[in-house]
Design a binder for these strands. Structure first.
Lengths: 122, 122
DNA sequence: TTACAATACCTAAAAAAATTATGTATCTTT
DNA sequence: AAAGATACATAATTTTTTTAGGTATTGTAA
């Protein structure tokens, strides 16, 4: 599992890119460690991104042209800030929309309507 | 991808067990092919379970004691009906609940509240 | 009647993704 | 001085997913 989650490990897959892109859309620019803290805070500790998952994802998004980086020195340490490119902004909105559509689709299965039982002929 | 989906391929991962268990909870007993048709119908063609994904999942759930099977002959063909065991019923409810909790958690990230900005100190 | 589509099951191998386990180094608090 | 937090990174293993294949029956359209 590429994220740590209290209750369900399987469900969260495939959402890391969405999370990262959305956070950057909200916050302008962030560095990796900051993203992990932010997610922890937002979800009240329920979701903990692991670094082994986050950094490869950030690198991939950068390679795909959705993010750009700038380094900043904090004392002797170097922080790598990520921010969205124009196509990254598009991708962020797309990903969030996709997620919401996916959830609606799942609700069709998980909360089936009992209305119009004539249609339930298999 | 172990399910075919029109818009998003990454998001659906990890939901197949949930879908199968919930369908069986709703419908009493179903056979594999029937499950694929049912999902297609419920989601208006948006979600197509592949057999390469479904059958291994059914076998795994059976091995885990969540499903039991009974074979039924239809002419010369044999259908394998699956139904929930008591622990399968529990698992079904659990999985659906987990999914809903997961969605709520994701909404914390995807629809962050702008209220109380004093709390947003990182 | 023949061929194609649908029904119905299944699995192994290849490909992709995720996690674990590391590694390095700095800064802050106790 | 040590421990914990900050901050980056990746390579190898493990797990998961998909693709591609296999078998066989039934219904339907040409």
């Amino acid at each position: 599992m590429y994220l740590c989650l209290m209750y369900s490990k399987e469900l969260v897959k495939g959402t890391l890119k969405t999370i990262v892109l959305k956070l950057l859309a909200e916050n302008g620019r962030m560095y990796g460690y900051e993203i992990t803290r932010h997610v922890r805070q937002l979800t009240d500790g329920e979701l903990e991104l692991t670094e082994g998952a986050l950094y490869p994802t950030l690198h991939k998004l950068e390679k795909d042209g959705l993010l750009v980086t700038e380094k900043e020195s904090i004392g002797k340490r170097v922080r790598k800030y990520y921010s969205l490119t124009p196509s990254g902004s598009e991708a962020s909105a797309d990903k969030v929309r996709e997620f919401q559509e996916f959830v609606q689709m799942m609700q069709l299965i998980l909360n089936p309507k009992k209305i119009n039982p004539a249609k339930s002929i298999v």
